[in-house]
Simulated assay, not measured.
Amino acid sequence: MIKVELVQASRIDYQAYASFQKDAYRDHLVQSGATDSHMTPEFYHWKYHTPAGEGRIAVVKEGEKIISSSAMMPLRVHAKNSSLIGWHCLDVATLPQARKRGLFLSTLRALKDSVEEKEIFFAFPNAKSIPSFLKLDCRENVILTTWVNPCASLIRHTFNEIKESNKFGPEHDVFIKESLPDGPMLERCSEYLNWRYTNHPNNRYAIFSYEQNNRCQGFAVARKAHVMGRDLVLVMELWGRNHSIEVKLLKHIAAWTIKQGEKLLAMMNTSMPLFFAIQASFLPIPSFFLPKRQILVLNARGQKKEYLIKNKWKIQTGDWDVF
């Protein structure tokens, strides 16, 4: 019988946990040409302590050694004039010698069963993992569109209205309250955005705000990254009072990309209309060209169940994982 222990994030030995994660993902990292330099105790401690609360980790041990685990962190979900707790399931890992024993599904089930009826359980699994989530009564919601700007070097537009900063403030909260859509989507506020980007223990992000008449009319977040052997810039967040402002933000980031010595610009975004994306020189990449089809799956109960399942979530790069 598989014994799964559900542990609060504050009780985890992060030194041992980070070492386990590195061992479990080593073969995948080698295949993808990635490093494990980001998998530090400090990273996981930060990741599992969000503004919405403390994460949970389901672990299976042999003796004192972790051989399999799944984790989830709490985030706030904006859903039709209400705010709910959504548990983002991630960091699912099993040591190579312990695979094919049902540990993966057992740890997922322990996490999902701990979620209260008024809360949401969601994830962005790979193709091999989707059947396990479907067994837990999760539903596929939306495929994340990957957009790429392959010719950022041809764009030199900058806009005086766009200012770069290193943190979010009250002006962003006012914009968010007035302009962001009803959802479903992860809730934005300066507290969450500063935790997510400004306080990230590993990565450095650039924050761009579009200001007009002394008011914030939109913002974007970008960072340099190394993905699948390529250097590029990722647009993590993109929000504007209208799509025309979002196009200006993307053009400004393209010019910033060149200053960083990069040429390729990419983002995941489920709500960007093709017409406006093309204006910023972004094209959608068919999912069969990608190493992983990014898809949101979720389980919801309670009064908001139908709304959360039937409506396509508004997802961006920064929602997918805290990289």
Results as ranks from 00 to 15, higher is better:
L136M: 11
D137C: 05
R156C: 10
K163S: 10
I162W: 00
K163Q: 14
R156K: 14
N166A: 09
H157T: 09
T158S: 15
F159C: 05
F133Y: 15
P150D: 07
K167A: 13
I143L: 07
W147T: 01
I130D: 00
L154V: 04
H157Y: 04
D137L: 12
S165T: 15
N149V: 08
T146Y: 03
F159S: 15
P131W: 09
I143K: 06
E140C: 08
K163A: 07
T146M: 01
D137M: 12
N149E: 11
S129D: 02
S132I: 08
L144V: 03
C138T: 06
S153V: 09
S153G: 11
W147R: 00
S129M: 09
S129K: 07
D137H: 15
H157F: 07
I143A: 14
I143N: 11
N160H: 10
K167Y: 15
I155Q: 08
F133D: 06
R156G: 09
W147I: 01
P131H: 06
R139W: 01
S153P: 10
K135T: 09
L134D: 00
P150S: 13
L136T: 10
N160Q: 11
I162P: 02
E164Y: 00
C138E: 01
F159I: 03
E161D: 12
R156S: 15
D137E: 15
A152D: 07
H157I: 09
H157E: 14
L144R: 02
K167I: 06
C151M: 14
C151I: 15
C138A: 14
I162K: 02
C138F: 15
I162G: 04
I162N: 01
S129E: 09
N149F: 06
N160Y: 04
R156Y: 10
C138P: 03
V148W: 04
S165G: 09
N166C: 05
S165R: 01
S165V: 15
F133W: 03
H157M: 01
S132P: 00
T146G: 02
R156Q: 15
S129L: 02
I162R: 00
N141C: 08
E140H: 04
R139C: 14
W147C: 01
E161P: 03
W147K: 00
T146D: 02
F159A: 05
A152Q: 00
S153R: 06
I162A: 05
L144I: 00
L136D: 03
N160R: 13
T146F: 05
L154H: 11
E140G: 10
W147D: 09
E161S: 13
S132Y: 14
P131R: 08
V142S: 11
R156L: 14
D137T: 09
C138K: 00
S132R: 05
K163W: 03
N141T: 02
S129I: 06
I130A: 03
T146Q: 09
N141I: 09
T158D: 05
V142R: 13
I130W: 00
S132L: 15
R156E: 15
P150E: 07
L144E: 02
N166R: 12
C138L: 14
R156F: 14
P150K: 01
E164A: 12
E161W: 00
H157R: 09
C138Y: 05
N166K: 12
L134R: 08
